[in-house]
Amino acid sequence: MTIAPNKPYAEDLTIGMALPTVKFGPMDRFDYIPIALILRDTNPLHLDRVYAQERGLPDTVQQGPLNQAYLYEFFTNWLHQPWDLASTEIRFSANVFPEDILHCGGEIEGLEVGEEYDIVHCRLWQKNDEGISILTGKASGRLPKHPK
């Protein structure tokens, strides 16, 4: 499978190209504290290891929006400008725990030609080191045309 270049122009891409995969981590339990404060959600499942283990989990659970933020980071870094992001559709499949490594990747599913810019539609995924799917979904972004 051909790998799409980083910060691509519309003309550089074809359907079926893979996005260059990116690895994040290991995840850090101390990152869950600022995220809990931002979300105003102090659910002990995210903060208290003993509480989580008493409920059958191996450790505290990383907040879903933080998993999502890493997938957004992957996709928006690939675009020319972060706010070239147009839309996302994300499905939450499994939990992330401290020390997990997150692998993000994707594939180009569609290209729409526009006057000022084109739109790229991609299928995205996020997996842990064991290959377990954490997030799956789609994202679309604006692509500039090659400067003449």
């Binding site: 979300l39 959600d41 994300i90």
Partner: peptide, 12 residues
Amino acid sequence: APPTFAPLVAVL
């Protein structure tokens, strides 16, 4: 704000 922050705004 970075777009990575946007899903948190939606959630919270």
